[in-house]
Each structure stands twice: as structure tokens, then as C-alpha cells.
Design a protein around this nucleic acid. Structure first.
Lengths: 207, 207
DNA sequence: CCATGATTCAAACAAGTGTTTGACTCGCCC
DNA sequence: GGGCGAGTCAAACACTTGTTTGAATCATGG
């Protein structure tokens, strides 16, 4: 049985990912960790610093378990790297268990920011964003305007995050749609490649 | 000066849209409405029924102010109707003020459901979903599998909702991107038409 | 074995929440 | 004017939240 501090981070990761920072209660976390309510204050100071510790802790677990490049190299064609990016993000968002906590915490921070958002964006989100915009720029061509690159990247991550953010609604609307992650990833990649190609053609003007 | 009941619904619409059902407090709503805390209990019974009243009230304001067809007819080509759908949804989500409350409440319900989600889906979301899947089916061709129709529709609304759900994050990532609604709508329409076309080609298999 | 510091515990605390109460005010009809 | 019902109000209630407290327990080195 690991120490109380580790059990608290484990339990807090699960509860924060499932209920969000505000909805999660220290009592629920401590019960799940088999610890006393005062343990959080003793080991971390307060709820905020426990949350920051969880963000720091889960970051590594996420990148090692779901490498953002999924094993493809920077020399592979951008279509392959886009597919790897989508597949990695979707798996992080929809998987269950510890390695998925970090992406789910990021998704929650986006739709309901806590004071930790800014640090989280700089630490975790911006590197992924840079990777994605790099892929998009390659697909759009070097002379594509920055705005086209950004909106295309937003379209890609918007499709992926939708299955997390609106999962409760989608389950009611189209039962069973969110279950097959691999199929969803294939669709999003194909859809996005088509969308990026259409954006590229538009930028070149009529010919 | 309208009656207390009307002022409460007005204030509650603004507060619920901005803070969500759980984060909004009766006291904040009552102060904004210039009413006593007991007024909610007197006029609506409890917080839940005030929330339901707000959902009912704002629904009409939304559809009359931002008609989902934006004036285009069912006989217009599906490309035009898709553009109208995207533009209408995006304006609802990103505008400020009373007519936008309903869409923002829907967006909040999706990412953080309250007991009212199911009723809201049946009343407001499913009709819009039916309209969108109809457009997608037309673009994909009649023999397109149901799953392709659903995933394409999800890709379209996912892109739109992203600018609402992740607005705090996107503001940090790409300042200024979320400001020009009309440009965003044009991009999403073009991107989606390209994505749907790619999905259609895939469905027909190699030729 | 015991002293000392780290850790745990039940209990309490202060602040905030939705809700209820009972007195009070106001307008209206007989 | 008097009674009456609808509406309003300050105050309190019951409950949950994060946090603190001070004693009890444990572990470890002398």
C-alpha cells in the first residue's frame, strides 16, 4: 500500500477527471483514498495545490502512455502524422483509467477554466497546438495565411473534443456513436483532410 | 418596471448562461433582479424549476431571433442550407445578450449535464440535429450509410461548439481568432463541405 | 525504552448554499 | 374603513463546503 500522498493524487486524479475541479469535494477524494479529510491540508496545503500536483503528475503519465506522435516520425507525410495526432488525442479523451485523466482534465479546464488554465495551456496545450498547426501548414502549403492554418487546426481539435464535451448529449442523440474510437478517428482524419484540401483550394483562388 | 417573476427570469437567464446551473447562486440572481432571496421559492418553487422556466422562456427568444434556416428555403441546394445552419449556430453561440442565452445554456448542458438535459435534448437539440443530418444525407447521397451521416453531422457541430467550449483556451492560444464570427462561419462551411465530399468519395470505394 | 518528529484522526469551525418561516406591506373589493 | 389575499422582506434553518485544531498514534534513532 503506497503512502497517503500517492493515494491522494491517484484518487484526486480520478475524481477531478470525472467531476471537474469545482464539483469534486475533498471528502470524496479522501474517502476514495482511504485517508482523513485533514490529509489534503497536511500533504498539499489546500485543494488548489492538490489540483496542481495532479496536473503535474498526470502530464507525464499521459505523454508516455499515449505518445502524441504514435510512433510516426517527422519525416512521414503530413497525412500520416495528422492521422496519428487525431488517433492519439481521441484515445486520450475517450479511454478510461489513469492515462486518460490528463486529457480529460484539459478538456474540463477549457470549458470551465480554473486559475490553473493558463499554466496548463503553456505546459501541455501549446506544444500539441504547435505540432498540429505544423501539420496543417504543410498540408495547406507554405504560402497559406496564418489564419487559415489556425482555423483548420481548430476544426480538427474541435471535432475530437466534441466527442468528449458533448458525449452526454450525443449518447442521447445517437446511441452507440461514441463507442468505436478507431472508427471515429478514421472518420475525423478523412473529413479533416478533405476540409483542409478545400481550404487550400479556396486560398489559391479560382483557376 | 416589469413584475418580479419576469425580472427573475431575465436575471436568471443571464447568470445561468454565464456561470452554469450549479455555479449560479440564487442570491446572485435575486440581487441582479432586485428581489428578495425568497422570491425564487415563492414564484417558482425551487432553483430547478426556475431553471426549467428559463429554458422554456429562452427557447422562443432564440428561434425567433436567430431562425435556424436564416431565411433560406428547403428547396435551396444543401450547400446553401449548410452555410445557413453553421452561421445560425455560430451566431447563437458567440453573440452576447438575451437571444444568445439559450444556445449557451445548451452548450453548458452538454459539457456539464443537469437533470434537465434529457428534456432539453428532445425539445431543442434533436430538431436541429434532424435538420443537420438531413442536409448531410443530401450531400453524401441517398445510399450513404447512417453512420457516415451521423459522424459528418457531429463534425460540423463539433467545429461550431469548439469556439464556445474552448473559447478561454483558444483566446490564450490564438488571440483574436474567435472575434470575427462571419469569417469563422465561412471557414467551417467550406471545411465541412470538403470533409463531407471526402467522406462521400470514400463510401463509394475506389473507382 | 523512550523521546522526538512525522503522520493520522475525530471533531469543530467559518463561510456559503438552497430553502423555509412568520411578520409585514400593499392594493382591492365588499 | 375593514378584511383578505398576494407579494415582499429580514431572519433563520439545515446542510455542504474547505479548512483548522489539538490530541492520539506511529516510526525511528539514541
Amino acid at each position: 500500500m503506497p503512502g497517503t500522498r500517492e493515494r491522494l493524487i491517484d484518487a484526486a486524479g480520478e475524481v477531478f477527471a470525472r467531476r471537474g475541479f469545482r464539483e469534486a469535494t475533498i471528502r470524496e477524494i479522501c474517502i476514495a483514498a482511504g485517508a482523513n479529510v485533514a490529509a489534503v491540508n497536511y500533504h498539499f496545503g489546500d485543494k488548489d495545490r492538490l489540483y496542481l500536483a495532479v496536473l503535474r503528475e498526470t502530464h507525464e503519465a499521459a505523454v508516455t502512455h499515449f505518445p502524441p506522435d504514435m510512433g510516426v516520425s517527422d519525416d512521414d507525410p503530413p497525412e500520416v502524422r495528422l492521422d496519428a495526432f487525431v488517433r492519439s488525442l481521441l484515445m486520450r479523451l475517450l479511454h478510461e483509467g489513469r492515462p486518460a485523466w490528463h486529457a480529460q482534465l484539459m478538456a474540463r479546464e477549457m470549458s470551465d477554466p480554473s486559475p490553473a488554465l493558463e499554466a496548463l495551456v503553456e505546459q501541455s496545450v501549446r506544444p500539441m497546438w504547435k505540432r498540429l498547426t505544423g501539420i496543417c501548414r504543410e498540408l495547406l502549403g507554405e504560402k497559406a495565411p496564418k489564419r487559415a492554418v489556425d482555423t483548420c487546426a481548430a476544426s480538427v481539435v474541435g471535432q475530437c473534443l466534441h466527442y468528449k464535451h458533448a458525449s452526454a448529449c450525443m449518447r442521447l442523440l445517437v446511441p452507440g456513436l461514441c463507442s468505436e474510437v478507431a472508427t471515429l478517428a478514421s472518420h475525423i482524419t478523412r473529413f479533416s483532410l478533405g476540409g483542409i484540401e478545400a481550404t487550400r483550394r479556396e486560398g489559391q483562388g479560382p483557376c
